[in-house]
C-alpha cells in the first residue's frame, strides 16, 4: 500500500516535470523543472520499489540507485546549463539579472 502511494507520487511529479519542460520559456528554466521534478519523482518511485521488495536484492539496488541518481542529475544539470551558456543560448525575455555575462567571455 505504502509502496503504491510512493510510486503514484513519483509518477505525478515526473508528469509535473514534463509539463514544466513544455511550458517554461528557455533552456535554463526548463532544466530547473527537469532536474528537480525528475529527480524527486524517480527517487520516490525507487523508494516505493524498496518498500515493495524489502531489504532484498532488488530493494537494496533501488536504495543505492538513489544517491547515484542524485549526483548524476545535479552534475548533468550543471554541465548542461554551463554548456548552453557558453554555446551562446540567450536567457529568456523575462530574465531580470545576469551576473555571469562578463565572466563567461
Amino acid at each position: 500500500m505504502v509502496s503504491t502511494i510512493l510510486i503514484a507520487i513519483g509518477v505525478l511529479f515526473n508528469l509535473f516535470g514534463c509539463i514544466g519542460l513544455i511550458r517554461l520559456p528557455d533552456v535554463y528554466n526548463r532544466l530547473q523543472s527537469a532536474t528537480k521534478c525528475g529527480t524527486l519523482g524517480t527517487c520516490s518511485i525507487l523508494a516505493g520499489a524498496l518498500i515493495h521488495f524489502g531489504f532484498m536484492d532488488a530493494g537494496i539496488k533501488a536504495l543505492i540507485a538513489i544517491p547515484l541518481l542524485f549526483f548524476g542529475a545535479t552534475a548533468a544539470a550543471h554541465a548542461l546549463v554551463r554548456g548552453a551558456y557558453h554555446f551562446g543560448v540567450k536567457l529568456g525575455d523575462k530574465s531580470v539579472k545576469d551576473d555571469y555575462k562578463d565572466i563567461a567571455k
Binding site: R23, D26, L91
Partner: peptide
Amino acid sequence: VAYRVLHPAMPIKPGI
C-alpha cells in the same frame, strides 16, 4: 517548481 509550472500565469522571474 510544481506550483510555478501549474500556475496559469507562471510566476517566474529568472536570472543569474
